[in-house]
């Protein structure tokens, strides 16, 4: 009998605010820009990796300068240095 946990690793490319994504509990996340800098703003990419139980979240964004208030239960995904934005994910159940 194996105790191995299932690894969930994915990259959400070019997500819009309000899009629903899956996140494992306790996931490690990063926000990056990928693509050719020469042809404009590279594409936003949200990288997610974790082994916990997965749940659905809504992606939201806020300006990164100053104090940023995010709803309880949110997961901070990372900061996008290209647009000075902080991306975070709110559990869909918060809306219900």
């Amino acid at each position: 009998m194996s105790d191995d946990a299932e690894l969930f690793a994915t990259t959400y490319r070019d997500p819009d605010e309000g899009d629903v994504i899956e996140l494992p509990d306790g996931a490690t996340t990063a926000v990056e820009r990928v693509g050719d800098v020469e042809i404009g703003l590279p594409t936003l990419a949200v990288e997610v990796v974790g082994t916990g139980e997965r749940a659905q979240y809504v992606i939201l964004r806020n300006d990164a300068d100053g104090d940023v208030c995010i709803p309880d239960g949110s997961n901070v995904l990372g900061v996008d240095g290209w647009t000075d934005s902080v991306y975070f994910a709110v559990p869909t159940e918060v809306y219900e």
Binding site: G18, V58, L60, N62, P71, V90, Y95
Partner: peptide, 9 residues
């Protein structure tokens, strides 16, 4: 400020 925010319902 943001209609997508959970408090905007």
């Amino acid at each position: 400020d943001d209609v997508l925010h959970p408090s905007a319902g």
